[in-house]
Amino acid sequence: MTIANIIAVVLLLAIAAYACAGGTDYGAGFWDLVAGGTERGKRPRWLIDHAMAPVWEVNNVWLIFVMVIMWTGFPVLFQTVFSAMWLPLALATVGLVLRGAGFALRKPMRRLSRRRLYGAVFAISSLLTPFFLGAAVGGIASGRVAPGTEASADAWSNPTSVFFGLLTIAATAFLGAVFLLSDAERFEAPDLMGYFRLRALGSLAVVVVLGVAAFAVTHNDAPHVWHGLTHGAGLVFVVLAAVCAVATAVQLGRSSARWTRPAAVGVVATGVIAWGLAQRPYLIPTSLTVREAAGDPTTLVWLAFVTLVAVLLVGPAVYLLYWLDTHGELEALGDADLRQGAAGDSADGG
């Protein structure tokens, strides 16, 4: 395997990591959007705020990692994609900014109208951003962009792009519901466990339906990817995704949500990897191969070295952060905690 192929595998794994980690946050925003009015949606939104607050920002590390690898390792791919599909990618970027601002600003607002405004910005951006990212991936998979292609709506509004965008939204909603179910169990909230268990099952069904539909659309609209999904390594990961989907459904039917998260992550991760392997040997079917898009060999060697260092340094820190969060070690102090601390200080002073 050449150094260019190794970097391409790293890029694919980084995309899968962002799809799972960032997708969970987008999914939480989706459920925030459809939670209902102020009173009806109070409990689900309470859980969403508590679940997302400790780690939501760190998930964007994977997106930055993807951008750095594209720009440094495959400059032709970076230029082609961002030139031909600048509009959906710009809209996704705006959505990322508005989403972060909405989430950060809605909680400290005292006026209900402003909390609703910032909450709506956060929730709607959580819906539109994954759609545009998925639509861009669909444009790549269908081969509608190539080096020198000018920007056009057809590059990201074709059948493959639309179905990939909808599938991305469904996958993020699925991940969000599964992770919120586990958080509801951790917070000992049985009402929210039932609430998100039902939504996890429903969104899994939507993912399966849209996945089959997208698979059918690629037969005529993205034939190279369709062939890759039905043969070789691509087919293996399609089967693995189906196995993980069944395992997730089985886990959701049980009282404990302990193993639902790994199974759900397996569904999305194997699906993303299946798409990447189906495009081999192309980064953009059928106009740009890995070898043609690769940068200077010396640059790729240094990129591989920096990636290894980043994995060794950042990987354990990110894992520790996730572990602390899932074990309830990052809970924010509430008013009761602060009052209790103040009372303790007064007693000590007395």
Rank of each mutant, 00 (worst) to 15 (best):
P108N: 06
A214Y: 02
V318G: 06
G349D: 13
V178I: 15
A170W: 00
L127G: 01
P285C: 11
V243M: 11
A101F: 06
E39L: 12
G350M: 14
A173H: 03
V301Y: 03
G37A: 12
A8H: 04
L96T: 10
E292W: 01
N59A: 10
R291D: 14
R111N: 14
L324T: 03
V206E: 01
H219Q: 13
R254E: 12
A257R: 01
A264H: 08
G234E: 05
D183L: 08
G266C: 10
L198T: 14
S113F: 07
S152M: 12
V236T: 12
S255V: 12
M1V: 02
H231V: 06
L112I: 09
I64M: 12
M109L: 08
A19K: 03
L204P: 02
A216Y: 10
T298N: 01
I64K: 01
A294M: 00
P316C: 07
F164T: 06
S256C: 07
F30I: 09
R116Y: 06
D325M: 06
V236H: 07
P44A: 02
V314H: 09
D335N: 09
L47N: 06
H227P: 00
S157G: 13
I15D: 01
V209F: 09
R144G: 10
F196T: 01
Y282T: 03
I124V: 15
F65H: 06
G232W: 05
A247P: 00
A278N: 04
H227L: 06
D337P: 08
K42R: 13
H231M: 04
W259S: 05
S157M: 15
R186A: 14
A241W: 05
L96V: 15
F74S: 01
P285K: 12
A35P: 07
A257L: 08
H327S: 10
A146M: 12
V9I: 13
